[in-house]
């Protein structure tokens, strides 16, 4: 729950007051955005950019609205102008983050392929020293479909299976059925 607004919030020129306003008494800016327009990941991403300069609070004042409150850690200049500029920057960052969120979903395969090739090309194969440090004793990964299990482990009779180690969730699920 964001702190109550002081009764003296001021509108920002060019922006409807129900979307953004500055609270000069509390020296903070408040931006309300339509939740259906901005994915919550974009709101996190855009708000995060300000945490070195501001204390940032996120809230949901109404089911369809997300609120971002920026309280600058330091305001050296004209407070109204400084806050107005931050609201503008936040609004631009929100659009950028929302579009980037959409692009990364659309181009996911290409981005992953290029990233993997770039990192793998730079890293190269592990050296003997690297391999020495690998921990082979841990479970390598979750195996809910039992892909890493032998045919016998996966499909043997339940009496036999009870004697084998319990390797994966699939087996447990089969037994529960």
């Amino acid at each position: 729950m964001s702190p109550p607004e002081s009764p003296t919030t001021n509108p920002i020129a060019g922006i409807p007051e129900d979307l953004a306003r500055v609270d000069l008494d509390e020296r903070r800016a408040i931006l309300d955005v339509e939740a259906s327009l901005y994915p919550v990941e974009a709101v996190y991403g855009a708000a995060y950019v300000f945490i070195d300069r501001c204390y940032v609070l996120l809230d949901r004042p109404e089911p369809t609205k997300l609120r971002i409150v920026l309280t600058p850690k330091q305001l050296d200049e004209d407070a109204a102008e400084g806050l107005r500029r931050m609201v503008g920057e936040l609004a631009n960052e929100l659009v950028s983050a929302a579009w980037r969120h959409q692009i990364t979903q659309e181009n996911r395969a290409q981005i992953e392929a290029v990233t993997m090739q770039a990192i793998a090309g730079a890293m190269g194969p592990p050296s003997l020293d690297d391999l020495e440090d690998f921990d082979f004793t841990d479970e390598a990964f979750e195996d809910p479909l039992g892909i890493a299990m032998s045919w016998e482990e996966k499909y043997s009779k339940k009496d036999d299976a009870a004697e084998t180690a319990e390797p994966a969730a699939t087996q447990r699920e089969e037994e529960e059925e």
């Binding site: 950028s96 579009w99 692009i103 181009n107 981005i111 990233t115």
Partner: peptide, 15 residues
């Protein structure tokens, strides 16, 4: 950090 920079500087991920 390198992985983040590779993703961020991929022009096909940038508005």
């Amino acid at each position: 950090t390198v992985r983040a920079m590779v993703i961020a500087s991929n022009l096909d991920s940038q508005p």
